[in-house]
């Protein structure tokens, strides 16, 4: 069930210039949040911002009543959120959207491909898959080392591989040229810049591999009411906020074929 709730910020960490992470405490009975789901955050005291900002859940622990958000500063909304401090409250509408498929057999091989801010939802995913006995390979990339906001947090849950366009960390080259990318997997999950996700999806489709992409579109309601955030799918326009943000590429050939 979705709810509107004031969370308390219990930890704030700056991660390089562009990213910060907020750990939020519910204070009561938190609703379960599945990997790939997102929240709509109310941005207060910023006159240029009216609508909530959709932000993917980086990690969630329903029992402890905590969830964390990994945020990239991109505009007025996220810049305002960056000024929040420990002890401040944050109003969320959550949990929203359709997340990643995590009910896959133990012993399966999964590849998680994340770029930039798209790395955020993959931590909760890796943790959940690992707990289910799935072998995870986590491939993270960015233009340069400082744009990969987190990496070590992934180590307990799988093999961690890195790639940067400028070679400052890990494999030198765009993420889809990493040798591990050519291996075969039972499922590939990806979240990041659209051109990267489309390249991952095309490669997976060519090789007949199962693949899920997590999209981000400009959004208003977050619950499938306003139909502003639609994406093209093979079945027509679908809401990223409600039918997604995670889509199986078997319904997305139109989307990933269009470069």
């Amino acid at each position: 069930m979705k709810e509107i709730h004031d969370f308390r910020i219990i930890e704030r960490r700056q991660l390089g210039e562009q990213y910060f992470r907020l750990l939020l405490k519910h204070g009561g009975q938190m609703q379960p949040v599945a990997p790939g789901q997102f929240v709509e955050v109310l941005v207060e005291d910023e006159p240029r911002v009216m609508l909530r900002r959709p932000i993917s859940v980086h990690d969630a622990d329903a029992e402890a009543g905590t969830l964390s958000l990994l945020v990239q500063i991109v505009g007025n909304g996220t810049r305002r959120l960056a000024t929040l401090a420990e002890g401040d409250s944050l109003n969320l509408v959550y949990p929203l959207g359709h997340g990643f498929t995590t009910a896959i057999p133990a012993g399966s091989k999964a590849l998680l491909v994340g770029g930039g801010a798209g790395i955020a939802p993959l931590l909760h995913l890796a943790k959940t898959l690992h707990a289910g006995g799935v072998h995870c390979t986590v491939l993270l990339g960015g233009r340069t080392a400082s744009l990969i906001p987190v990496q070590d947090d992934f180590r307990p849950f799988g093999d961690l591989l890195l790639a940067t366009d400028d070679g400052s960390l890990g494999h030198h080259g765009i993420i889809t040229t990493h040798p591990a990318f050519a291996d075969t997997y039972d499922i590939i999950y990806t979240c990041g810049p659209t051109p990267m996700m489309k390249a991952v999806a095309r490669s997976a489709a060519e090789r007949g591999l199962r693949c899920e992409v997590s999209l981000e579109n400009m959004m208003a309601c977050g619950v499938g009411a306003c139909l502003c955030c639609v994406t093209d799918t093979d079945q027509g326009h679908r809401c990223v906020c409600k039918d997604g943000p995670v889509f199986d590429i078997s319904t997305m050939s139109k989307w990933y074929s269009n470069k």
Binding site: M50, L51, N217, M218, A220, C226, L227, C228, V230, H237
Partner: peptide, 22 residues
């Protein structure tokens, strides 16, 4: 099917939408 994306943009104290009756 309505109009193509992008269909909305936030503006000062408001928003523009062009969903097109999907």
């Amino acid at each position: 099917e309505g109009n193509p994306y992008p269909r909305m943009v936030e503006t000062p104290s408001g928003m523009l939408n062009s969903v097109g009756l999907q």
